[in-house]
C-alpha cells in the first residue's frame, strides 16, 4: 500500500527527471524536491494562514479575558476556547492537518531517494521490482528517454560528492574529512527554523521555539553527517526551497535573527 501510493510514484518521478535532464542524480534530487514543494504549496499556505489565525487569537481581548477568568478551571476553559474558535471560524486543527498530510510525503521522499540510489544489494533488490513494465511503457511514450531499467546504476556523483556515501571534504594538511554538506544542513536548518518561527508573547511557546531552533539543526546535521550525501543534499535543497517559499509569501521573520531585540520586545 505504502509502496504503491508513495514510493513507486516517487521513484518513477525521480527516474523520470533523472532521465530528462541527462542523468544527473544530484540535480534530479533538487528538481524533484522543487516539484514536491510546489505540489504541497497550497497545504503550506493553508498551514501558514491557520497558524497566523491561531496566533492572532492569542492576543484577542476575549481570549485573554477567558484565560484569566477560567485559569483554575481547565475543563471550562477548554469549553470556552472551543466556543470562541467556533465564533471566530477557526479550526484549531487546521494548522496541524497540512503538516500531517505532508509528513508521509516527506518520509516517502527520503525513502525513495535512498532506494533509488540503490548503492547496496538490499536497496537494489528493493528498487528493481519498483521499476515495473508499466513505468517502462510510460517512458516509452516520451521520445529521447531510456528504458528505466537501463538507467541502473544511477550516476551517483554530483559536484564533489558520491551521493551514495556520507560526504567529507579532505583538505591537504588536515587528517580528517570535513563534512561540508552536513555543515550546510545545520546552517540552512537553523536559518529555516529561526526565520520561520512566529514571534510569541507566551513564554512556553518561546521556550519551545528556542529548543526547536537548537535541536532541529543538530538532529538534521547528525543525519547528514551519518547517512548518504544524497539525503543531505535533499535536506539542503528542502531547507533552501522552504525559506524561498516563505520569503515569497512574505512570512520570513528576519527580526528573529536579532536575538537581543527580540527579548526586549517580549518584555
Amino acid at each position: 500500500m505504502w509502496d504503491t501510493i508513495i514510493i513507486k510514484p516517487f521513484i518513477a518521478g525521480l527516474l523520470f527527471i533523472y532521465d530528462m535532464i541527462g542523468q544527473n542524480f544530484g540535480i534530479a534530487i533538487i528538481l524533484f524536491t522543487v516539484v514536491i514543494k510546489a505540489i504541497t504549496h497550497p497545504l503550506t499556505v493553508k498551514q501558514i494562514k491557520s497558524s497566523k489565525a491561531m496566533q492572532d487569537l492569542q492576543t484577542d481581548k476575549d481570549w485573554l479575558e477567558m484565560q484569566k477568568k477560567y485559569k483554575n478551571d481547565r475543563d471550562r476553559l477548554a469549553q470556552e476556547q472551543m466556543k470562541l474558535y467556533k465564533e471566530k471560524g477557526i479550526s484549531p486543527f487546521a494548522s496541524c492537518l497540512p503538516t500531517l498530510i505532508q509528513f508521509p510525503i516527506i518520509i516517502g521522499l527520503y525513502q525513495s531517494i535512498i532506494q533509488t540510489m540503490g548503492n547496496a544489494p538490499l536497496q537494489m533488490l528493493n528498487l528493481i521490482p519498483k521499476i515495473t513494465p508499466l513505468l517502462s511503457n510510460v517512458f516509452s511514450f516520451l521520445p529521447g528517454l531510456q528504458e528505466p531499467i537501463s538507467l541502473i546504476p544511477l550516476q551517483n556523483h554530483f559536484l564533489w560528492m558520491n551521493l551514495g556515501q556520507p560526504e567529507r571534504v579532505y583538505i591537504p594538511g588536515i587528517s580528517f574529512g570535513i563534512p561540508l554538506l552536513a555543515i550546510f544542513v545545520v546552517i540552512t536548518s537553523f536559518l529555516q527554523t529561526k526565520l520561520m518561527a512566529t514571534p510569541s508573547s507566551d513564554p512556553q511557546s518561546q521556550q519551545m521555539t528556542g529548543m526547536m531552533n537548537l535541536y532541529m539543526p543538530i538532529l538534521m546535521g547528525w543525519f547528514a553527517y551519518s547517512f548518504a550525501s544524497g539525503l543531505a543534499l535533499y535536506f539542503v535543497a528542502s531547507n533552501v526551497i522552504t525559506i524561498i517559499q516563505y520569503a515569497v509569501l512574505g512570512k520570513l521573520n528576519f527580526s528573529n535573527l536579532k536575538r537581543k531585540k527580540k527579548v526586549e520586545v517580549v518584555k
Binding site: 525513502q111 535512498i114 544489494p121 538490499l122 536497496q123 556520507p166 551519518s226 539525503l231
Partner: peptide, 21 residues
C-alpha cells in the same frame, strides 16, 4: 523529535551502521 529521528533513521539503509547486504 525522537519519533522523527527514529522514522528517518529507519528510512535510511546507508552507511556502515546498518545491514545493507
Amino acid at each position: 523529535t525522537l519519533i522523527s529521528a527514529v522514522l528517518i533513521s529507519g528510512c535510511t539503509t546507508n552507511s556502515a551502521a546498518s545491514a545493507s547486504s
